[in-house]
Structure formats: structure tokens, C-alpha cells
């Protein structure tokens, strides 16, 4: 008999009487929801992100690219990795300055991994949404904005639309029916990478980005 059969047979031999019924997760979250409006959700997300060293800039559809370039130049960055063929990538390219090189992620990583690890300062990706409760950004890497963009460069810029902020993780996954089809990789990101493994002392910039910069994009005419 295979290991699989042996293990399953051993488990099947035991009849478990307790807790046969499905736990009521919806009931719990329904009872504990705060029912916040857009402004309150933004505020909670901001507080949670700032608590973990995340830089947040309020932007609009018109000015986000110039704000980003300004911040990038201020940090002395030389390159930003952008997604290939994305509308926001194109928008950024349209107002590119000479001091900053925009590198589209065009080729499979296997051909240029060393360059990504050693020669790219920063990256920009679009968030799919966010979770106000914990300050988590939701990223679903795509063929045009692959997984390593949010991991390898030292500074990670994230463009987030305020209308995509959910109250909690459960609300996000149910509103968007995640269970009907998950991408190869889905991420929640809250702050730059960090560790407290040396004598419980918190240090940022462990293995992933050292800085996380969120461009919180408000709908036209709305104030931050």
C-alpha cells in the first residue's frame, strides 16, 4: 500500500463525532463589522501602515505620476521597474525625466535575474485593493506585474485606489469571490520587510524592500 493509502486509511478508521457542522465565519464577521465609510477606512489603513514605517502620499489621477517622480528623485533613485503594457506604466513613461530610468518587466526573469537583484533601485505596482483593519495591501501579481516586482527592489511604490479599500480580509475575499479562483500568487503586504530576530530588536529591510511607499489615489474632486 502506498504512503497515501496508509495515512488515509489510518485517519478513516477514526470516526470523529464532535464539530461536524461548518463554523459560522460569516456570522462572526457580521457581528464584528464596524461599517465604516470611505474616509474612516482610509484613516484606519493609513494609521496601520504608518505604524510599520510606510510612507503615504495622497494623490489624484492627474498628479500621481509627477508626485511619484518627485519622491523618487528626492530619494536619489536611478531606476524604477514598471509593468510591461500597463496603463499606469504608460502614464508614468509619459512624464519621465532624464534622471530616472524606467525599466519595463518585459522578459522572463531567467534571462535577467542578476540585473534585477543588483541593478534596480525601485519598482511600481498597482494594488488590487487593501484591508483597512490591518493595513494590508492586496496584490495579485499578473503576467504584466510579476511576483518579484514587489519583493526584490529596495524601494517598492504601490498605487492604491481608495475605492478598493475593504474593511477586513474576510470582507475583501468574499466581496471579490476569491474562492472561485485564486491566482498563482496572491499577497497581503503590510510595510517594508522586517525582522526582530536579533534580541527582539525591530529592524527594517530584512530580505524584501527596505521602504514601502503608498500613493493613495483619490477619485477626482475628492479631498484626502
Amino acid at each position: 500500500m502506498s504512503a497515501r493509502e496508509e495515512i488515509l486509511n489510518r485517519l478513516r478508521k477514526t470516526h470523529v463525532a464532535e464539530q461536524q457542522a461548518m463554523p459560522d465565519v460569516a456570522g462572526w464577521f457580521g457581528a464584528h463589522r464596524r461599517s465604516e465609510d470611505r474616509v474612516q477606512r482610509c484613516a484606519r489603513l493609513r494609521a496601520a501602515l504608518e505604524a510599520v514605517h510606510t510612507e503615504i502620499h495622497d494623490v489624484t489621477h492627474d498628479n500621481w505620476s509627477s508626485v511619484l517622480l518627485q519622491v523618487a528623485v528626492g530619494k536619489g533613485l536611478r531606476q524604477i521597474l514598471i509593468g510591461a503594457g500597463t496603463p499606469h506604466g504608460a502614464q508614468l513613461q509619459a512624464c519621465q525625466t532624464k534622471a530616472l530610468q524606467l525599466i519595463p518587466y518585459e522578459q522572463p526573469i531567467d534571462t535577467w535575474q542578476d540585473l534585477l537583484f543588483d541593478g534596480v533601485d525601485a519598482s511600481l505596482t498597482l494594488a488590487r485593493g487593501a484591508v483597512a483593519e490591518t493595513g494590508s495591501l492586496i496584490l495579485w501579481p499578473t503576467p504584466s506585474e510579476p511576483r518579484l516586482m514587489s519583493l526584490v527592489p529596495s524601494i517598492h511604490f504601490v498605487l492604491l485606489d481608495e475605492d478598493t479599500i475593504h474593511e477586513d480580509f474576510y470582507a475583501a475575499m468574499t466581496a471579490e469571490s476569491w474562492s472561485e479562483g485564486m491566482p498563482t500568487n496572491a499577497l497581503l503586504i503590510c510595510g517594508p520587510s522586517k525582522t526582530a530576530d536579533i534580541q527582539q530588536t525591530l529592524a527594517y529591510g530584512a530580505h524584501g524592500p527596505k521602504e514601502l511607499v503608498v500613493l493613495l489615489r483619490h477619485a477626482d474632486g475628492r479631498q484626502a
Partner: peptide
Amino acid sequence: AVTTYVNMISGPRR
């Protein structure tokens, strides 16, 4: 409240 990363993997590279 949450860790920096929650990494959900549902398959190899397509």
C-alpha cells in the same frame, strides 16, 4: 495585527 507578508500560493508559474 498582521505580518508584513501573507503569501498565498496556488500554483507554479503559468
